[in-house]
Amino acid sequence: MNKTTFINTVRFILLILLQVIIFNNINFLGYINPYIYILFIIFFPFDKDNRILFLFFSFLLGLSIDIFCDSGGVHAAACVCTAYCRPLMMRSVFGLSYDYHTIKIEKTHFGQRVNYLIILILTHHFILFSLEIFSFAHILLILKKTIFSAIFTLILCLIFISLFSRKSS
């Protein structure tokens, strides 16, 4: 087992535990919870060759959260969608440098990083809440939950990224 696999496995387990033990119980203003487990999707090494593996791990991540939350397959569906769309988002945000696939999220420009996170988080949250609420009559509730939770998630993700990234020399 090489270093990247090890780090990703640890990250996978840690993020699930953090999410279900701490972040699912915040309930800020009654309904706002951050979903920081998508950091796994953000951090997963970019590689054109193992996209299927990436999809599969994202699915597993969502499914584990679903088991804890009793939400059927809502998180799994949102995770798989986000993972599938990730290359598209990266191409639109980072432009050409994506093709060098040595890109590290903590070494990107702050503006680009925020853009990338916003697109990814909004996609994930929108799919998540649409599937969870599952009714057009509640479209305002879906949008409200999406936006407020996304802001919370974004702030926490930025903090986590700057806390746990190694200092570039």
Partner: peptide, 17 residues
């Protein structure tokens, strides 16, 4: 693969309803 995984999660959602 994406379609398969996605439809499986949709199946889980419908089944949980």
């Amino acid at each position: 693969t994406f379609l398969l995984l996605f439809s499986f999660s949709l199946f889980l959602i419908v089944q949980s309803h």
